[in-house]
Write a protein that binds this DNA or RNA. Structure first.
Lengths: 139, 139
DNA sequence: ATTGCTGCAAACTCTTTGCAAGTTC
DNA sequence: GAACTTGCAAAGAGTTTGCAGCAAT
């Protein structure tokens, strides 16, 4: 059931391979939806009716610590999880709560160049997070 | 006690002028710290020992609805509140949980120009939120 | 055999809500 | 006096934690 990619990722990170864990990671990788813990649990329950949300949270925390996924906050309450490793930004539509990756190398380069030139006094930059807020066309 | 600016803002927004409300708004305007509801309550209790945090939240919600303040989320759990009206971005230091305004008209222009040129298919941009993540120099 | 994981429930943090009594306009 | 606000407590959402029993290495 568990695909090889998932097994490999878990092994590389020295995480024990359990059915729950592989299922959770598969959902995040395949859904590609920036799901919340609640979303993941709902989805898993289609095949696995009794998985507790506590187990989902514990695994998400581990995945975040290992760098397998990244937590993303929106203006909404719940934390969303992003499995993508390459540097990117996000589109967020508050009305629909849809959160999407926004890949744009030109933009990344633009910001890198900008902040390489313009230093901020007494502040060391680790990352730049850009959220493009808006809405999807309705027709 | 309540200063004229606060009174004016409340009147302009047709909010009734109560001691609690003016005190809350004064704290946000004067602290300039992007305080959380908890921060505001702690601070108010120096002079006003029994103010309930529920009252703080109710007023914050109203201020947000009226556009007097803007809620800002960081990677941390609690919501922070920003009274600044001019367009700006933020510096955030996760280690210290310090959130600061970052005013930079060149950056705003750079992003505006960029997104005026480069449209995103099926997406109407309402706002661009940029958080510069990093840490303050320790020496 | 050791170490780590699951399942369950309780607890915790942040925020919202309901409502009676009081205040503002 | 009509409409709104406060204070208080209870409840709600999202998340974390503790621990006994079980599974993976």
């Amino acid at each position: 059931m568990a695909n090889k990619k998932v097994i490999r990722i878990l092994a590389e990170n020295k995480l024990k391979i359990t059915p729950q864990r592989t299922a959770i990671l598969e959902v995040i990788l395949n859904l590609n939806n920036h799901p919340s813990a609640e979303d993941i649990t709902q989805y898993l329950r289609l095949n696995y009716p009794h998985i507790p949300i506590g187990t989902v949270y514990k695994n998400l925390d581990l995945f975040v610590k290992k760098g397998i996924i990244t937590p993303v906050r929106t203006s909404n309450e719940s934390m969303r999880y992003d499995p993508v490793k390459e540097k990117h930004h996000h589109l967020y539509a508050p009305d629909s709560d849809i959160l999407e990756d926004f890949f744009d190398d030109d933009l990344i380069k633009l910001l890198n160049d900008y902040f390489n030139r313009k230093k901020i006094p007494d502040f060391k930059i680790d990352d730049i997070k850009l959220q493009i807020i808006g809405r999807h066309d309705t027709k």
